[in-house]
């Protein structure tokens, strides 16, 4: 079993994932990388990325078909380890064993910022005296100053290698055909307003008791609704407060006929909702804090299509087209279930 690659772009990617869960199931094979996060409560993420979008010089080899390797990867250490790579000149990752424990070993070559200015150079007290014996030793000083100093940082992330059997039973959630699909507005704007609504509702419904409500049940739910005429409505209501915000002029993308299994597009639930007019909404209720974490995917800059299954679930498809000029083979899918009233 071999896995070795250089990494690129992975920083923002890990940032977005690590907010949602502590552990990811990672499936690597010849064609793609899949990250799956299934937390006990909250949003499931199924991300499928093209190799080139996050890796370079990718080598994978295993006994399984398609050279598949399944790993269980803790996200906070991954995220922390990748921090070391921020100013790196190169960063690579490989699967290995250390002391019998499997790890993903991240090797980062980074220049030390204080190159040429560290204690070996002029700061050395021995060289500080302009009249001392060392004043003419320019050769050695130059050698120190001109040299780019490299630090090699190795970060070992503990992992578990999963057998094919153990992941066989894990499937993407099945959700019925959505009633509405709509391209979301700027996620940063949506997130700012959502977070504001959540805070307001928490402050007003519990007499300002902040943060104390840790269980999701006690947090007021955001109501998110879309119609098939380009509108998205975000609202929240408590005993003392009822606010909503509406976006209009958004795009309801056409369904791809190939995905309808030969069904008549006219019979699709979204066609019915569209026919029902502008006042026909498909609504879901979601946890405000969880939603805020989901929206952090906005930093990846992808296009986001939200699919509403009325009173049932919300699915976000995040297409990372900027990673791979126009080819939509990197998609993050978020499954968010709706709370009942």
């Amino acid at each position: 079993m071999r896995f070795k690659t250089s990494i690129r772009n992975i920083q923002t990617f890990s940032t977005s994932l690590s907010t949602l869960g502590k552990v990811a199931w990672v499936r690597l094979d010849d064609d793609s990388v899949r990250f799956t996060i299934i937390p006990e409560t909250g949003t499931q993420v199924w991300a499928s990325l093209s190799i080139e979008s996050i890796f370079e010089d990718y080598t994978i080899q295993s006994a399984a078909p398609n050279n598949t390797i399944n790993l269980e990867l803790p996200l906070p250490p991954l995220h922390r380890a990748l921090k070391s790579a921020i100013n790196a000149t190169s960063a690579s990752i490989r699967l290995t064993k250390k002391d019998g424990v499997p790890v993903l070993s991240l090797t980062i070559i980074t220049n030390t910022v204080s190159s040429g200015n560290s204690a070996g150079g002029f700061l050395n007290p021995a060289n500080a005296d302009p009249f001392g014996d060392n004043v003419f030793r320019e050769e050695s000083l130059d050698a120190n100053m001109g040299r780019e100093r490299e630090a090699i940082v190795t970060q070992d992330i503990p992992i578990r290698v999963l057998t094919a059997d153990s992941v066989e039973g894990i499937h993407e959630p099945r959700v019925r055909e959505p009633d509405a699909h709509i391209v979301l507005p700027s996620l940063i704007q949506l997130k700012a307003i959502s977070d504001r609504f959540t805070k307001l509702a928490m402050a007003t419904s519990y007499g300002g008791a902040r943060g104390g409500a840790s269980s999701t049940a006690s947090v007021p739910k955001l109501e998110l609704a879309a119609n098939m005429h380009g509108s998205l409505k975000l609202s929240i209501s408590t005993d003392s407060l009822n606010i909503s915000s509406v976006w209009s002029g958004l795009n309801n993308p056409e369904l791809d006929p190939r995905q309808l299994d030969g069904e008549n597009p006219e019979n699709h639930p979204s066609a019915k909702l569209k026919a029902a007019g502008q006042d026909a909404w498909s609504t879901v209720r979601i946890d405000g804090r969880d939603w805020g974490k989901v929206l952090s995917v906005g930093r990846l800059g992808g296009r986001v299509i939200a699919c509403f299954a009325d009173e049932h679930a919300l699915i976000l498809y995040v297409y990372l087209s900027n990673f791979n000029d126009g080819v939509d083979d990197s998609v993050l899918t978020y499954y968010i279930s709706s709370f009942s009233v």
Binding site: S84, K98, T112, R147, R149, E150, A151, I152, T154, D156
Partner: peptide, 10 residues
């Protein structure tokens, strides 16, 4: 995380 930093004595 198990972290090793290797640097030159310079």
């Amino acid at each position: 995380l198990h972290t090793t930093i290797a640097v030159d004595t310079l």
